[in-house]
Amino acid sequence: MEWLKTLISRPSKGVSGKTGYWRTFKPIYDRDKCVLCYECYVYCPENCVEIVEKVVKIDYDFCKGCGICSEVCPANAIEMVKED
């Protein structure tokens, strides 16, 4: 079953370099509004949302600023803010 290693791949950080610098808008998280529904965690296409001790952590080294987390958040706890 050698094929299995070709078919499936596990995410690893930075295989294509840091992609965070592509970002135009940055997701800013507000813990007070967050209802811990995990939607941002599930939907982030880059797998750069982690939830650590009931707090959303966004890995800005790899977040490209697509805004999906903000879009799916039912509590408006993630705001997209233009980068400086």
Binding site: K5, T6, L7, I8, S9, R10, P11, N47
Partner: peptide, 12 residues
């Protein structure tokens, strides 16, 4: 977590 059918090496 893993991905199925990601881009892979041609020979592989």
């Amino acid at each position: 977590v893993f991905a199925v059918g990601n881009i892979a090496d041609n020979l592989e």
